[in-house]
């Protein structure tokens, strides 16, 4: 029993020495790039499958289908944007260890929380935007001249990813910028 308690105490002591600030902050950065990127990959892939179906009937619609397919791809870029800014401002990218280690655990948690909107909303909105894009591609398949409306309806989904990015950016900027 004493042995276990001792071991736990050692682990706790070692853990306390870890630079939790940068760890939290970089976890946030990684999650932002990871989740938003996954969402975009799913969304773009769904739209691509629907697009290939339309193109097999009418290859001339390639440009219109491509625009729709590309739409759910932006969330991945938003995630990358936040991840990059965290990596840049935390000093990791420039190798500025002083700035990096000066991040307190509280600040790190703020950054982690700040990364969540773009990570989670990015993931989910990209998938749902992909679904809207699939429907839009179906519309373009039947009525090619209506592609403007299909694009507009699909872009409406992205508004919420933009708003999430805004909050993520302001939080990260507020803590690290």
């Amino acid at each position: 029993m004493e042995l276990i308690l001792n071991a736990a105490a050692t682990v706790a002591a070692e853990a306390a020495k870890l630079p939790w600030g940068p760890v939290f902050a970089l976890t946030g950065a990684v999650l932002a790039a990871l989740l938003a990127g996954i969402g975009s990959a799913i969304g773009v892939s769904m739209a691509g499958q629907a697009g290939a179906g339309v193109l097999s009937e009418d290859p001339d619609k390639f440009s219109r289908v491509l625009v729709l397919q590309a739409l759910p791809g932006t969330q991945g870029i938003y995630g990358l944007l936040i991840a990059f800014l965290v990596v840049l401002w935390s000093g990791l990218l420039t190798g500025d260890m002083e700035t990096l280690l000066a991040i307190t655990p509280e600040q790190g948690l703020f950054v982690l929380a700040g990364c969540m909107p773009v990570a989670i909303v990015g993931l989910i909105s990209a998938v749902y935007q992909g679904k809207a894009a699939v429907a839009g591609i179906g519309l373009v398949g039947r009525r090619g001249e209506e592609s403007g409306k299909a694009i507009t309806m699909t872009v409406l989904v992205e508004t919420y990813a933009v708003l999430a990015l805004l909050i993520s950016f302001l939080t990260v900027f507020g803590v690290l910028g």
Binding site: Y78, L81, L88
Partner: peptide, 17 residues
């Protein structure tokens, strides 16, 4: 909704960086 100007403008710069 106009914050998309901000988001896309920054995205270009950051990806370029």
């Amino acid at each position: 909704s106009y914050s998309r100007l901000f988001a896309l403008g920054l995205a270009t710069g950051v990806v370029g960086m």
